[in-house]
Design a protein around this nucleic acid. Structure first.
Lengths: 330, 330
DNA sequence: CGCAACATTTACAACGTTATAGAATAGTGG
DNA sequence: CCACTATTCTATAACGTTGTAAATGTTGCG
């Protein structure tokens, strides 16, 4: 910057002012500076700028694992939206481990970012509140619904209700659910299960706890869950995976076992990952409006960082959803 | 740091020395400093450290799109390996657009990182060489094979040859290839196609250009490519997708059209993404040793950054591969 | 012509760290 | 007990930027 100042015959600060679009600069001076910058190929040093300003123009994204399709797609979209606002996204994988989530919250990672998009999987809301620090955090997903935090989420219950209603409308009465968890009703499995029950109730169908299976939210979790359901002799005419990869795992296992889809058993998922469309049969699922989630969460976080949004209570935003009816459950 | 120094009754620099494991520090002094750090909850400011040292301890990763399963998995593994060496990974999506690739190479992104893992898709090697700058770059993938650059790649030709040989051994003679490109033989489609031809030759099978189809390296690319092959009436008894997602798209399309897999047509892919195992039928593919690629590329890049590796020629590393025989092509 | 009032530019300090080089202290041999 | 070396510590100056406040230019008006 010194060199530029010398080349343009102005002071250091004037160059800085040009770079920062300071109002009171004579056009001629500005041009001289810009010429010098172009000629010398000067680029501002971002590290120095960060040190001085205390801002990094990076957003932190904490999620369990980028290799999970839903998170890969989410990260991709968030990065694109953030880029359009002049921010970068730095990803931290927690692996769903409490210690990693905590260190993402307080450790050096936090320092590198101006704000956090946080998908907590193991940490409870009070622990997070105790370690939230000073910079803005926007929660993604559903584990947290607390007035202390901003939250951008999908309409879990409504979407699960809609897809269950669709299965019921197709004549299914015994709908197995994969991926439920014990206890909590405010996290995404809980909310989706609520939606499921509500749809059953509305249709006057019986709720059978034997149809609700706990398993890992992964492909092989869904596969083995549906396998043990078959082995145990529980009857069912539909499977609702609380996310797509479990549903796809189940779909695969059902086919391996010679069960006809969708004639014998219909399969539905949740997320509408890219892959769902190309499964055989194509997976009926619900699209949680990821584009909207990405846009609104980035906007909210940046507005908090830049002081545009000043609500003292946490804002809770729910993105719309869309039912995607395909061959696995027509 | 000033506060810590005061609390410990030592100078600023002594605190810095403790933090940097400077050799000549009395154990008692070191302990005093560590106690003061613990008591005050001090954490070093990474931005200031970066400004002073010129290092960010971040590695840049340039790839087309994180939502592509192969890249999601790769990024995830790279981040894990990098973390174990005390580095973070900052991802930049190029979308396969030349302009974005170029700006990742020279723009502010470069400043934020100590070195680059680069997966060039559109830029040619001379353009890259012209803009490579001063910091280390390790190429990932296959578009570049040039003595000027370090490269970590998979055994494209050998792996493609192996999987083609497997199809031939299964009695297939007319193997369609999806995802070929015109011209280049040193990029990954080119190398894989070479392996395909070599296997044909070794088996004395005829090479038919009509079986080689160009398409986008995406799910719907594979689907529509195999669709138009069917429509055009070209006979084939196997499909080799040059990557898994094309193969999976093709697999889906074949099933939709009522073709029996693997009886009528066998399908094979390349990459062994997580999803391949759970397709129906499960996809036969080749695993390119991603773990090894991740480990060796991170190690090489960090060794270059830290001056451990000083070879003046580019190092070319090929990771091993493993054939994954599954139901789509037994 | 003089002096507000405003526009434009500048000098200097600061952000929090590490490198350099030198000062202080401890240890050793004669 | 002194000179000399090895160890341990510290003062000062950077790294490259922006905020503050003050200096300088310019314009308009009485």
């Amino acid at each position: 910057m010194n060199d530029v100042a010398r080349a343009a015959g102005v002071s250091l600060k004037t160059v800085s002012n040009v770079l920062n679009d300071y109002e009171f600069i004579r056009p001629a001076t500005k041009q001289k500076v810009l010429d010098a910058i172009a000629e010398l190929g000067y680029e501002a040093n971002l590290t120095a700028r960060s040190l001085r300003s205390g801002k990094t123009r990076m957003l932190g994204l904490v999620l369990s694992d980028l290799s999970i399709p839903y998170y890969g797609e989410l990260a991709s979209r968030l990065m694109t939206v953030a880029a359009s606002r002049g921010y970068r996204v730095l990803v931290e994988q927690s692996g769903g481990v409490a210690g990693h989530e905590l260190s993402a919250l307080q450790g050096p990672f936090r320092q590198l970012t101006d704000g956090l998009l946080f998908t907590p999987l193991t940490l409870d809301v009070d622990t997070i509140a105790a370690h939230q620090g000073i910079k803005p955090i926007v929660m993604l997903g559903e584990h947290i619904a607390d007035p202390r935090f901003d939250l951008v989420t999908m309409k879990n219950a409504e979407a699960a209700e809609a897809i269950t209603a669709h299965l019921l409308a197709g004549g299914r009465r015994r709908i197995a659910v994969l991926g439920a968890t014990a206890g909590a009703t405010t996290d995404s499995p809980g909310l989706r299960l609520n939606g499921y029950r509500k749809a059953l109730e509305a249709a006057g169908a019986e709720f059978d706890p034997a149809l609700v299976v706990q398993c890992d939210w992964r492909r092989d979790g869904g596969a083995s869950a549906v396998g043990s359901l078959l082995d145990s002799g529980v009857r069912f005419d539909a499977v609702f995976g609380l996310n797509d990869v479990m549903a796809l795992g189940a779909l695969h296992e059902l086919l391996v076992r010679g069960i006809r889809l969708p004639d014998d058993v219909a399969v539905a998922g949740f997320d509408d990952i890219d892959e769902a469309r190309f499964a055989s049969p194509a997976l009926t699922t619900v699209s949680p409006g990821m584009e909207e989630i990405a846009e609104r969460s980035i906007k909210l976080l940046i507005d908090r960082i830049e002081g545009v949004e000043t609500a003292s209570e946490g804002l809770h935003i729910e993105a719309g959803f869309e039912l995607k009816v395909r061959d696995s459950a027509p």
